Amino acid sequence: MADRREHYLWDLFQRVDTDHSGSISVHELQTALVNGDWSPFNIETVRMMVGIFDTDNNGTIDFGEFRGLWKYVEDWSRCFKKFDQDNSGSIDCQEMSHALRTFGYNVSDRFVGTLIQTFDKYGTGDITFDNFVQACVTLSTLTKSFRSRDYESRGSIIINYEDFLTLVISSRPDMKGS
């Protein structure tokens, strides 16, 4: 079974590596990934994923890195389908609120609306798979950064403007160049 999966992943990797360089660029990966509505993945989401799995920091994904990235995509896909309760292929405010509560976030409906609006690339009031991943990973990353400064676990921090900018910019996985 493991050999069959490895063979499948190798075939997939070779199809995505359209220039046959032995590694996958951000643009090659974007071309290979589609949402349930057949729209291409948001380039920022693709950059974020490459940034997470590019362990040698060369801006591309080799086959070893691709294995981890593909498992990550499959795991997020299962998660997305679990919360897309109406099987519409997108997550609306109610579904996102349910997902975030399940993940342990206690946030207001107003915040969920802001999150959906921020990651809604079509202005339809919901988000596609790629932007769901980006929204969740961004929220997780920002939460970790916040908690690292919430020394007494009070749910609040005091921070000056430059420290705030540093916190947000350094913690956004999609802002690291590729």
Rank of each mutant, 00 (worst) to 15 (best):
V137A: 03
T118D: 10
V137F: 02
R147N: 11
D174T: 09
S21P: 06
P173E: 03
S88L: 08
F41T: 01
V16I: 15
G64A: 12
Y8G: 09
Q14K: 14
R101W: 13
Y151S: 09
L12G: 08
F80V: 00
F164Y: 02
W76G: 00
T124W: 11
H98M: 12
V112L: 05
R101V: 12
T141V: 11
R110T: 15
C79S: 15
K144D: 13
R4I: 13
V73D: 03
V133F: 00
N160Q: 07
V26F: 01
I159N: 01
V73R: 04
P40T: 10
C93K: 13
C136H: 04
D62Q: 07
G125W: 06
S140Q: 15
S178E: 09
S88M: 10
Y8A: 12
F63L: 05
N106W: 10
K121E: 12
D54S: 06
I24Q: 01
G177V: 14
D62S: 08
G123Y: 08
V107Q: 06
S21G: 14
G104H: 09
D56H: 13
F129D: 01
F13T: 00
T102A: 14
D56G: 10
V16R: 03
V16T: 09
V133L: 04
W10H: 15
L33C: 06
G125L: 06
A2I: 14
T143W: 02
Q85D: 11
F13A: 00
F53D: 03
F41H: 01
D109P: 11
I43N: 07
I127N: 02
Y105E: 06
L9N: 03
M96Y: 06
I169A: 12
T166S: 12
D86H: 13
N42D: 11
D174A: 12
L33G: 03
V133E: 01
D54N: 11
T18M: 15
L139V: 08
N160T: 00
R4W: 13
H98W: 10
K121S: 14
G68S: 11
I24W: 01
V107D: 06
G36F: 11
Q85Y: 08
G177A: 14
F129W: 02
Y151D: 05
D54E: 09
K144F: 12
I127K: 02
F119Y: 09
F13E: 00
Q30H: 11
D54P: 03
V26Y: 00
G155F: 02
W70Q: 05
V50W: 01
G51F: 05
I127Q: 00
D54V: 02
G89P: 01
I52V: 15
F66E: 02
D126V: 05
K144P: 05
F66Q: 03
E65A: 02
S153A: 13
L69F: 08
V26N: 00
D11I: 10
Q30C: 06
N160W: 00
D19T: 15
S23G: 12
F13P: 02
V46L: 07
E65L: 04
